[in-house]
Amino acid sequence: MMQIMAQGSFRRIVRDAARAALAACIWSAPAEAQDRLPERGKLIATAGLIQVEGAGGGGLAPWALITGYGTRDAVGANVHGTVVRVTNFTLSTLGAAVGLYDRVELSYARQFFDTGATGRALGLGGGYQFSQDVFGAKLRLFGDGILDQDSWMPQVAVGLQYKVNDRAAVLRAIGAKSDQGVDFYVAATKLFLAQSLLLNATVRMTRANQAGILGFGGDRSDAYHPEFEGSAAVLLSRSVAVGAEYRTKPDNLRFARESDWYDAFVTWLPTKAVSVTLAYVNLGSIATRKNQEGVYASLQLGF
């Protein structure tokens, strides 16, 4: 009986909270935003893509741009699916993200790391899979990286990614200190329009091993490390961009060295609603398996 009551009131609380949140969003919206969804007020490609942990960015690095095509007067949102197929492993990500008034970005992604046949060799069992939830939030601080073409001032944002891995026991066995962790980052992004060039630099404070797939902190180091993530993209037309990225990583675990990641990508944006990204990606050494290189493919749908 108590339980039923507790459940009932829990449901009611959740329901009321959801209603209140919805109402707050609608009322706090600028009056004109309510009858104009989707707005799609940004220029094509200037909303960026979605990076591998679900935040607005390139493929590997979060950028300072707020995802979605909503300007300061509107909300934008998208869903994406990404597959990274390297020599021994496959990392798949599904996620959704919203951009609020070109100021705040909230994202969620679920990552599945499939060890395939290598899982057995590693003693995990064939087809062993790690998965993790990534909850992201980003706040744009200052700068307009797209339109302020008369200054060098980039757009700057801070963000965090709270990650929860579902394989606590195995993570402990390989030397990781925790099955969850928070990354903090600051990103600076600038479009050099006269050069058709977009540059991004991100510094991430992290304890994550292989972005959290192999847990957080380790028997070699359990401290936060500053890591650098750089992206450069050249716009070839309104619907095609090519670029490259580099992401440094910590090296916290004794059992396996961890290497930096890099990629070279091409993105096609036939409309503001769709983007397709294909990349060559090199993830270096993962869980004692060297030369993890392969293909990155991502599809994004939204407004």
């Binding site: 797209i146 339109l147 302020d148 073409q149 329009l193 006269a194 058709s196 716009l235 309104r238």
Partner: peptide, 14 residues
């Protein structure tokens, strides 16, 4: 050409 377009847009954007 697209890259020429962007040089004009860069002058207007601010």
């Amino acid at each position: 050409p697209f890259w020429t377009q962007n040089r004009l847009l860069a002058l207007l954007a601010p």
